[in-house]
Structure formats: structure tokens, C-alpha cells
Computed example of a mutant assay.
Amino acid sequence: MRARRLRAGLRGWGGVGAMAAVCALALAWILLLPLARPHGAGGAPAGDGGQTARATQARAGSCTDADAQNRSLPPSAAEGATVRAIKERGYLSVGVDQNSYRWGYLNPNNASGALEGFDIDLAHRIARDLLGDADKVQFRAIPTNERVPAIRSGRVDMVVRTMTITCDRLEQVAFSAPYFLTGQQVLAPRTSAVTGYDGSLAGRRICSAEGSTAYDHLSADKKSGRLPASTDISTTVPNQLDCLVRLQLGECDAVVTDGALAASQAAQDPTVALKGDTFTREYYGVAMKLGADDLVRRVNRVLEDYRKDGGWKASYDKWLSPTLGKDSESATPPAASYR
């Protein structure tokens, strides 16, 4: 089943007008997705068949965020109830972003209007392994703050959407082994006096996405005193890209988000720039439902192959090297360590 395409009428990414158009398109796209819905498909994605979610990954009490990425299940090609249900249905349902430049986005200069990006490549690769056809995937646009609920409710089989593996999230969803290394960073107007995640944020209005690790760090660091008490972190948005729009409109002074996403946003708008270095070390993982052990193991096998056969590197070079650089620490896939 080939994905249905949405025509894109935007021209270019820079500036407030383009960003506002992208956000308007995002609202329409949420209503139009899925892109690919096979004939006769009517049910929600299969989860664990109604079974009680098993404690397949370490609980927060024995977990630290420094090693949360090392708590996934070893890879396997064995099929269980979750994988069989996906095969019987005939397509993989994946929650993705549609407005994160070079990660998962609608390219306004691509007449086909197809979703593109690093995360989109990975979703197609998983579908190819599970179903023998990279296009047997149903994409659903998921806001940042809806990623966990979408998995737990069974709206999607998995989320491939720049989602950091943390101990708190391991309580709610299962994760694959890590597929990308990143860290939190500050984005601000190029002419701003903000210098990074430091005292220069005093009295500044900081924007972050609801349900993001960025907001978690901002909240914790303000309570601990790492951030100045006068830093205003009250500006939160459902989708991370909305922070860039707020920044362009002068409704906030800086954005805190993953450095990989911030670099892509700086590429979209030359009036903003990264400020300072990343101040955390984090890993993205594919998120799935607790108890879907066979799917977690299968995705980990896909990731092993993706790293070994050059697929990961080819995708990085195509999408992320222009913004992060070929020599970045993120340019090498993170090694997997299983529990």
C-alpha cells in the first residue's frame, strides 16, 4: 500500500510567515493523517492483546537517566502476539512528527508532499523488516505532549519522534535500544545577549514543549538554583516547533530543546542561533507499549542491522550532516547495551 500524498504549497522555511503556515498545515495534517491506510483497516493498532503490561524494563527506583538507554531487551527475530497482529493487519502504525526539519517534516519544496527525514527513514526501515515493504506504514502526526498517551492507548504501534529515553518514561512505555545521541541546548536570536544555559537566562522568558525533557530540566534546575530565580519558564507549547514561532514573534527570549532539533531550526531561520554547548547527554529510542516484548526485540534487531549495513549512516549523511556536521559526536550511531 503506497502512502497517499499531501500537496505542499509553501515556499521556503525562513521567517515568521513560513513558520505560521507550517503550523497551520500541521493542524490540517493531524486531521488528514494517516497517510497510508490499507483497504479494510478500521481498528486501532494491536497492543498486547489486552494483557496486563509486564515489568519488562527497569523501574524508576533502580534506574538513573545516565543509563536509562541501556535497559532495553536483547534483539530477536522471534514473533510473538504483537508482531503477528501487525502482520495480520498488514501495516505498521507509527507516531511521527511532521514539522521537525530534517527529522520528520513535510518538505514545502517537494511537490509530492511526502513526509521526509531521519525518523521517517527509520520508520520505513522497520516496516520493511516486519512486513517486507517499506511503504506498509501508516503515519500519524503526534504532538510532543501526546507521544506517551498515543502508545498507551493503542493509537499507534510505536513512536519514532525524537523521543528521549528516561527513567520516568520507562515506567509508562517500552523503549528500543538508543538510535541517536543528543543533548539539551539553548536557541535564541543571533543578536541576543543570551550565551547559553547559564546566568544570561536571568529575567528571560524560556519556551519549551509540554511533556519534553527540556521542560523537566528547566523545572528541576530552577528549583535547585542552577537557573536564576528570575528565569520565566512558564511558556510551554504542545509542539516543539511552536517555540520557534513564539521566538520569532518576540513572545519568548529563548528556546530550550534537543540540540539536534535546535540545529535544524537554526538552519530554517538564520536570525536565530545555538547558544552555548549541550548541557545534557540524552538518547533517542523507539517507544512502544509496555508488554510488547516481541516487538521491542524485533525493533532492536532492525537497529542492529541498520547500524551494520550502513543504512543509519546514509540517513544521517542525507538529513543531519548539513546541520550537525560530519564530525559531530552524533554522527556515529550509539552502541547498544542490553539489560
Rank of each mutant, 00 (worst) to 15 (best):
E329F: 09
A114E: 15
A114K: 06
H39Q: 15
P45D: 04
T52Q: 13
K223F: 11
A260Y: 01
D119P: 02
Q57T: 13
V173E: 04
E210H: 09
D305E: 14
P178Y: 03
K326P: 02
R161H: 13
Y179Q: 05
L35R: 08
G14S: 14
Q185C: 03
V96G: 00
D168N: 11
A44S: 15
P143D: 09
G49M: 09
T323A: 10
G259M: 01
G183A: 11
T278Y: 03
T280H: 06
T257H: 04
A68K: 00
T56P: 01
M19A: 12
R169I: 06
T271A: 11
D157H: 15
L244R: 00
L181W: 03
K289T: 04
P322K: 09
R84A: 15
L218R: 02
M158H: 04
C207K: 01
H124D: 04
A28L: 15
A262P: 03
T236L: 06
P334L: 10
Y306P: 01
L115T: 00
A209I: 08
L244V: 00
R89C: 06
K326D: 15
M1C: 14
R161T: 12
L35M: 13
T64H: 13
L320Y: 05
C23K: 07
T162R: 05
V286R: 00
I86E: 00
D119I: 07
R307C: 08
L10F: 10
E304Q: 12
P178N: 10
T162K: 10
Y215P: 02
T56Y: 10
G259Y: 00
P322E: 07
Q69I: 03
V286D: 04
N300E: 07
S153M: 11
C63A: 11
Q57N: 08
F279V: 14
Q265C: 01
R205G: 05
T56H: 03
L241V: 08
D269E: 09
A209M: 06
L290Q: 13
A336D: 05
A141F: 09
E146F: 11
Y197G: 02
E210D: 14
K289D: 04
L25A: 14
A202G: 14
V286Q: 03
L201Q: 02
Q268A: 07
